[in-house]
Design a protein around this nucleic acid. Structure first.
Lengths: 234, 234
DNA sequence: AGCACAATGTGAACGCTGTTCAAATGGAGG
DNA sequence: CCTCCATTTGAACAGCGTTCACATTGTGCT
């Protein structure tokens, strides 16, 4: 019956994603090879193209898994915050940032794959469900950030969260960059801490003083609240 | 005589780098194809491998050019600073950061190529002259940063400069990222400004107050002052 | 000047990609 | 049991970086 083939399709898809995930963990995005995946998933190379349009689609699927793992990692980190900071909001932000670093170190290849570019990616647009999945990470910063600066609301808050996240990403990304002198984890951890604390202190100072200068251009920036679109095949 | 062939070699090299540079400007790193380059430089495909070991070596050469352009861009920006900031050092830092953004927008493909990864890059180590060339960018931040926080010296200053640079890089990088919602340039400019000002204010507050907490782990981090190694062939 | 030999330049060929498609296969209905 | 369509298959294709046997050129010696 039709249900059966549908189930087999789905089974093959997850088998392929599993294989791709392992390949990325080992060798990065470059580790994804059609023939290898087919062998691991016990199917013909052509079968891949029955369930995915591209290998790129498969990459998006692997990255989506990493994003969800990443998000749960960061979200669970939100719970505890034993840092001896004067301000609890600052402590939460620092904890989030260092957790970001910890994830990047622990799952280096998969984390790196999230931000890697393939030529084909530029050819056709990024799936919108993937854009949404990424933006969820930024949202995790919004809570602590508003606790720190209660005046921040709506799009301004979203933007600030994204910016702060991006800043931390930059520090971690270039800190672990193989093309630069790789910083020892201890040093990098300290840098992240100092970095976030500085921003936190600075932001608070900016917004509690007079501060109208920072409020401009509040057009739609990040899609909020929208439900995650059902991931249609194709 | 031998001089003649040497000159021809050099001529071919620059012709290839020129072609590669144009290819990257148009299509990113993926635009670099051996056969296309050979056609543009009017030589056989095999000739490329007489003057470069790899296409990767050629990529490093292109990126080195971009880095030098980038550096002169940032350095010249250091001259003027018309920003209406209370603190001149903060103005300089903000100006540097927005200039970073301006460069990334103006030379997007080439800028992106600087941070892109190819699988082969991981195979063998990055040339040390290239590592040095990159670290020169960080050094540009050290001047204004020390003006802002005079207590920062030596390795701590280098580290802080690198971290600040990395943070700005992250904001710009994810702000322009095609896989996320791309921010309008005006919004991004504002974000960079706010971001740098916050860090500046925060850093100043941290270091002028009591501030012993930030001083830890000052082991060698960035190679300083070392002369740029002569770029030997091979 | 002429000749021999080394160095340089050449592009067809190799091995590896992702992707396609004619042909083989297999299960449901008459 | 046979037919027929959907599914699956892997050989074949186009394009990639890289190599290498060979042609060509340049150099030094007599």
């Amino acid at each position: 019956m039709a249900r059966d083939t549908e189930a087999r399709r789905e089974q093959l898809k997850t088998a392929l994603i599993d294989a791709a995930e392992r390949a990325v963990s080992r060798n990065g995005l470059a580790g994804i090879k059609a023939r290898d995946l087919a062998k691991k998933a016990k199917c013909a190379v052509g079968a891949i193209y029955n369930v995915f349009p591209d290998l790129d689609a498969l990459i998006y699927e692997v990255n989506a898994r990493t994003l969800r793992l990443f998000e749960s990692f960061l979200a669970s980190a939100e719970a505890e915050s034993n840092d001896s900071e004067t301000n609890p909001a600052v402590a939460r932000l620092i904890h989030l940032a260092t957790t970001y670093l910890e994830f990047a170190i622990a799952h280096h290849a998969r984390w790196q794959a999230l931000f890697e570019y393939r030529a084909a990616s530029l050819r056709e647009p990024v799936p919108e469900w993937y854009v949404y999945e990424q933006s969820r990470l930024f949202m995790l910063v919004e809570g602590p950030l508003q606790e720190l600066v209660p005046d921040l609301e709506g799009d301004a808050l979203s933007l600030a969260a994204r910016t702060l996240f991006s800043g931390v990403h930059g520090v971690v990304s270039l800190g672990l960059d193989a093309k630069l002198l790789t910083l020892p984890p201890g040093v990098l951890r300290d840098q992240v801490r100092v970095f976030v604390r500085s921003i936190a202190v600075g932001l608070r100072a900016e917004w509690t003083k007079g501060g109208t200068a920072t409020r401009r251009e509040t057009r739609p920036a990040i899609p909020r609240k929208r439900r995650v679109p059902t991931r249609s095949r194709r």
